[in-house]
Write a protein that binds this DNA or RNA. Structure first.
Length: 560
RNA sequence: UGGGGUGUAGCCAAGAGGUCUAAGGCACCGGAUUUUGAUUCCGGCAUUCCCAGGUUCGAAUCCUGGCACCCCAGCCA
């Protein structure tokens, strides 16, 4: 990455470094613990880069652990996509792929310890009764009438819960802590619930499932995690995290450290809302290129390096934050600028006839695949009497600062010739249908024979050689920076109706015919594009990842 | 007087009592180079760190008191 930027540092890395140098830990162990109930998004990428990044940089280890304690919401499709996405991002968990469900038996034993020491009890209140007795933010809760069941009775009941003697919801196991705590999480939290539900891995072996607060800390401890990094909303859970570890015989006590989650302008970042976008068909799939999912960004054309760079640049703090889209976009542009080969493509074709160019002549011009890196090589681009140029590169009555084509104006056809506009045809609506030009046959390759200045250089594609293609132009998914800010409007009301514009008659230079799925190019003067998996042999499909910076559009007061 | 957090430029974010008339990135505004109005390059962009007091020779950094914003009342994670 760029040398001028400081190496990643943040309060968590500083703490890890201090723990290592102070010998509080001898090796750093972290974990990325997704629940397989949806696809990973860019916010998860922040956590992945943090956890795996720290392990890599401090010579430690990082686990990929599925937090699979709620079989109702979890699916195999998600566990597969998560692994695919983490790997694609460039991280390697080696043999450290685990599941909270791997520990169900041990979790049960630790729960039994709590029961044995009167630190947990079986509560037979209904869910509603538990809620009602929990109190409120300002009033203490009331103790459950089952709070003082004997250890023997609790052992018996808890065992029978496991054996399947009870229906869902009939009993729960609760920690016995403090119903008057100002921290609601400490008001005798539920540790286990009965759920007769097939689990994607353990099948029907269990009908009781441990909850997050009990599972997570113990799973961390079992794996020898030293620093358990999570988002801010778990801050209130830390006392419970510590309580469970302090009251069971687990031999290790990881430190939970919280950081703020990522918010990105013009999108939403909760799995609940992303799930809704997919289910309600506001987008096509989890990997729709408009989605902030890793899979969506990938299909959009983002590179793993660009996402890692982004995660590095946004930093890690405890402050609520909202990142501007331009930061993310700048990261792909920066990566693709040096890595994407250049090509010419016309998205909104306007036919140009070169009056004085021989009818049946065909030439070929050598074009650099990268203007600043000869290592990319060159390719041959065919040229003939009829070509296509971008409709926006011609104006009937252009303003003075317009450097492109207009009646009587001369421009350079990139790598080919200098041409001067001699006229144009329009249809009944006054729309231009054909532009006529004369070319300077002394300007082969686009070089002015007399050294005259030609300010404008435009891209083009030979009409008879062009490959028709579909191009999908993406824009922000929402029209509001923060789609969930409004209390009276549902976020789906703010979906940008123009977030996807499909162009079916784009014209590509022939070198693009054989582009492989997911390969990325810069279409000169337009932006970066990526081959979509919907491409077929006869009809390539390209997704626009991001436009190029466009100071001309800016000057005219418009976006892209 | 429920508990837990956070406040440094438009957006992120360094900063840990003196080297701060406060790094870096994005955005923005110039200007140079350019066969992509791209890239690259140079320059500009907080006398001020939520506010008010205080401690100190010296405070964004320490203390006190305010204010603002975020999170928590799932048998979700």
């Amino acid at each position: 990455m760029s040398d001028s930027e400081a190496a990643p540092t943040n309060f968590i890395r500083q703490r890890v470094a201090a723990d290592l140098s102070g010998a509080r830990v001898s090796e750093v162990v972290t974990r990325f613990p997704p629940e397989p109930n949806g696809y990973l998004h860019i916010g998860h990428a922040k956590s992945i880069c943090l956890n795996f990044g720290i392990a890599d940089d401090f010579d430690g280890r990082c686990f990929l652990r599925f937090d699979d304690t709620n079989p109702e919401k979890e699916e195999m499709e998600f566990v597969e996509s998560i692994q695919r996405d983490v790997r694609w991002l460039g991280f390697n968990w080696q043999d450290r792929l685990t599941h909270a469900s791997d520990y169900f038996e041990r979790l049960y034993e630790f729960a039994m310890e709590l029961v044995l020491n009167s630190n947990a009890y079986v509560c037979s209140l209904s869910a509603e009764e538990i809620r009602e007795s929990r109190g409120t933010l300002t009033e203490p809760g009331k103790e459950s009438p089952f709070r003082n069941r004997s250890v023997e009775e609790n052992i018996d009941l808890f065992n029978r819960m496991r054996e399947g003697e009870f229906a869902d919801g009939e009993h729960v196991l609760r920690a016995r802590i403090d119903m008057t705590s100002g921290n609601l999480n400490m008001r005798d939290p539920v540790l286990y619930r009965i759920r007769h539900q097939v689990h994607q891995i353990t099948g029907d072996r269990w009908c009781i499932y441990p909850l997050y607060d009990f599972t997570h800390c113990i799973s961390d401890a079992i794996e020898g995690v030293t620093h358990s990094l999570c988002t801010l909303e778990f801050e209130d859970h830390r006392p419970l995290y510590d309580w469970v570890l302090d009251n069971t015989s687990v031999s290790c006590h990881p430190q939970q450290i919280e950081f703020s989650r990522l918010a990105l302008d013009y999108t939403v970042m909760s799995k609940r809302m992303l799930t809704q976008l997919v289910r309600e068909n506001h987008v096509s799939t989890w990997d729709d290129p408009r989605m902030p999912t890793i899979a969506g960004l990938r299909r959009r054309g983002y590179t793993p390096a660009s996402i890692r760079l982004f995660c590095e640049r946004i930093g890690v703090t405890k402050k609520d934050n909202r990142i501007e889209m331009s930061l993310l976009e700048n990261c792909v542009r920066e990566d693709l600028e040096s890595s994407a080969p250049r090509r010419m493509a016309v998205i909104d074709p306007l036919k140009v006839v070169i009056n004085n160019y021989p009818e049946d002549l065909e030439e070929t011009f050598s074009a650099a695949n990268h203007p600043a890196d000869a290592g990319f090589g060159t390719r041959e681009v065919p040229f003939a009497k009829e070509i296509y140029i971008e409709r926006s590169d011609f104006m009937i009555d252009p303003p003075r600062k317009f450097f492109r084509l207009g009646p009587g104006r001369e421009v350079r056809l990139r790598y080919a010739y200098l041409v001067t506009c001699t006229g144009y045809d329009t249809d009944d609506n006054g729309d231009v249908t054909t532009v006529y030009c004369d070319y300077d046959n002394q300007s082969h390759g686009g070089n002015a024979p007399d050294g005259r200045k030609v300010k404008g250089t435009i891209h083009w594609v030979s009409a008879k050689h062009a490959i028709p293609a579909e191009v999908r132009l993406y824009d922000r998914l929402f029209m509001r920076e923060n789609p969930v800010e409004s209390k009276q409007h549902h976020f789906s009301e703010f979906i940008n109706p123009d977030s996807l514009i499909t162009v079916t008659n784009a014209m590509l230079e022939p070198a693009l015919a054989s582009a492989e799925n997911e390969s990325r190019f810069q279409f000169e003067r337009l932006g970066y594009f990526c081959v979509d998996e919907d491409s077929t042999a006869g009809q390539p499909v390209f997704n626009r990842t991001v436009t190029l910076r466009d100071s001309w559009a800016k000057q005219r007061g418009q976006g892209s």
